[in-house]
Design a protein around this nucleic acid. Sequence first.
DNA 1: TCAACATAACGATATATTTGAACATATGGC
DNA 2: GCCATATGTTCAAATATATCGTTATGTTGA
Lengths: 103, 103
Amino acid sequence: MNKNYMRAIPKAWRNIAKVFTALGDEHRQRILLTFEPGERLNVGQIVEVATLSRSAVSHHLKILREAGVLESVKEGKAVYFWIAKDFLTDALQTVIEHVRKNV
Amino acid sequence: MNKNYMRAIPKAWRNIAKVFTALGDEHRQRILLTFEPGERLNVGQIVEVATLSRSAVSHHLKILREAGVLESVKEGKAVYFWIAKDFLTDALQTVIEHVRKNV
DNA sequence: TCAACATAACGATATATTTGAACATATGGC
DNA sequence: GCCATATGTTCAAATATATCGTTATGTTGA
């Protein structure tokens, strides 16, 4: 039993905590699943299919970006988002490996 | 662009959504990290190291169990929990594979 | 029956989510 | 340049959800 409760979160998990929080919301999952392979989408395109206001979509996109799950770039008036594929798979792989070794 | 926003969540993700929600909380992460390899712990043992009341710990354990991350059995007066290692790794692997194929 | 252990019920507080309005920025027509 | 429009973000306020502790309830074993 690891009694070091208040210090137990490994460094590698620091970013991952945000990933889990980001992916723990149903709207944010649906947004992720809206992207097709290699695709970039702007806010307006996501608002079109989502059942949320523009500002709510913007809010969720911000959370996903701050978690590292999405990346974005502003091009003219629009802001384009895409999925940070490598970051996301690496983050989840880190947790899998931790569980395999330490559980 | 996948426009089927309201139906976009794959069957395989149904359970996984709960996993992400469960792992998105810092206390629940710390609880998970309290378990050492192959170990079973009862509620009282976790309360000892946690900085939460017994009922709060019980609440978090319930969320983890309902997400499938923990399993439990009652033995006498105590309820013992352990990490559902295979379920957890499989669930995360499912997401990784989805991302690799579809992102 | 009593004590130990765990969960459930309840209310209080904190955090998250959501929308509409205000604000910021880029584009294009005049 | 100047104004209107298109696109996003931020803010404030309302609502909803989550978290937590206290207390009550249920179960098991001595």
